[in-house]
Amino acid sequence: MMKEVTMKFDFSGKNVVVTGSARGIGFAIAGAYAACQATTFVLDLNQEQVNQAVEKLCNQGYKAFGYVANVTDPSSLESTFKDIIEKHQSIDVLINNAGITKDNLLLRMKSEEWQSVLSVNLNGTHFCTQQVCKYMLKQRSGVILNIASVIGMMGNAGQANYAASKGGIIAYTKACAKEFASRGIRVNAIAPGFIETEMTSRLPQEVVDNYAKAIPLARMGKPIDIANLCLFLTDEISSYITGQTIAVDGGLTMY
């Protein structure tokens, strides 16, 4: 099914960077671009996991490169993106996907739990965007896609930190879209609903069952559902769409 959809897009000659892409939704996104002939850059924290992800992609005959990078560290990002530009000349697509959760009820939330989620999810999105937009502005082209969450739209008990970071990403997306529009750079966000990943596998079954009841399509989504929208939103066929947040959530959020 994944092939059927992704084969319709042609990203050959395009350099696509996906942060947090050694595992989970990020890896599915990286895989989808690689399958569409993109040169795909896997950025993640852990060297071993980055290597494994790149190896999986290369074994399928795809073009992929790995970088160990920490999205909360601007200087690590500066050298990473500089190296990509030096070796590959352009960055055509940036997917800000790196994200974490540290759930706790507000009363019990430790300062570290608050800070680290905001730091990775929101600051990380900004630091990567800030580095990459330098090159995209020069190129007068590029597409940035931020992975938000339906939690950033509707909130969730026990996830105040995550909700704030993802809501922040949605607002950030709009500001960037306005700032870069005149230079031909589009910025959009995707808000995944409940997607089957390691992150959601940690949720108690009761919570999952309750959410499934609230989803009109009555099931969880798959990482490829997110990847497919990424392909669409970064292809030229969506050239009139910018500043938007699109939910991929089985109908969970409808306003």
Binding site: K134, L137, K138, E179, S182, R183
Partner: peptide, 11 residues
């Protein structure tokens, strides 16, 4: 020039 151009010039 617009404001973004002036920043790009300085860069």
């Amino acid at each position: 020039a617009d404001s973004l151009d002036t920043v790009e010039l300085v860069m």
